[in-house]
């Protein structure tokens, strides 16, 4: 990944931007800026006309800065699209029902459960997965902190933990151990690496917030 793109991701404290925009009352403009162009919308004629129901959808979204154009069965989850179609298997399936957090990715900088997100829903959004965090030259501070604090064992929940942890810091929810525990409780680690995860986030938050 280029340095430019890394900065883009790093510099995107999306939730803060969004809250600020919403508070200022110009949310419509902000959301319109998503450029929600889907094939379904493209078929509209007037704003009040019904949108077309399509059995398949052509969706375009960016994953780790690379645009993906995919012809989708609309049932497809973002998780399965990432793993089985795009071939990015760092994002894991642990429950497929939003109950474990292993599939956590960022959509426009916000953490979501990719198993409960239709791939069709993320048209024109920017997705970041574990593969898009850090690069061969330098790990993301959170990745390094997970190594330093041995915040993992089997490693299967780790990509989801790290994506959630990065968002946790960006959201401003890494202020205390108790707050980290609460805001990381959506990511189950069956190996029980929780104390290491909390320590890693405390440490990485300092680095990230410089």
């Amino acid at each position: 990944m280029s340095d430019d793109r890394k900065r883009t991701i790093e510099k995107r404290p999306w939730s803060i931007t969004r809250r600020a925009v919403l508070a200022s009352g110009s949310a419509v403009g902000a959301l319109a800026a998503f450029g929600l162009k889907t094939p379904a919308m493209a078929q509209e004629t007037t704003p009040a006309a019904p949108a077309a129901f399509l059995p398949r959808v052509l969706v375009s979204f960016a994953v780790n800065g690379v645009t993906q154009d995919i012809d989708l069965d609309p049932r497809t989850s973002l998780l399965d699209a990432l793993r089985e179609t795009i071939g990015l298997t760092g994002t894991k399936k642990g429950c497929d029902h939003g109950q474990c957090g292993a599939c956590t990715v960022h959509v426009d900088g916000r953490r979501v459960a990719s198993c409960l997100t239709l791939a069709a829903q993320v048209a024109d959004r920017e997705i970041t997965t574990i593969e898009g965090l850090g690069d061969d030259e330098a790990l993301h501070p959170m990745q390094q902190a997970f190594i330093d604090h041995d915040a993992l064992q089997c490693g299967y929940c780790t990509p989801g933990q790290i994506m959630a942890a990065v968002a946790c810091v960006h959201e401003g929810h890494a202020g205390s151990e108790a707050e980290i525990r609460e805001y990381m409780s959506g990511n189950i680690c069956r190996c029980g690496a929780y104390p290491g995860i909390v320590a890693a986030i405390r440490n990485a938050a300092q680095v990230m917030e410089g």
Partner: peptide, 21 residues
């Protein structure tokens, strides 16, 4: 010593069984 496979794991590069396609 640090966990020797932690690097692969934090990068999402450790390949588990059904990661194979």
């Amino acid at each position: 010593i640090p966990r020797v496979d932690a690097y692969e794991k934090v990068r999402g590069r450790a390949i588990y069984g059904t990661d194979n396609n």
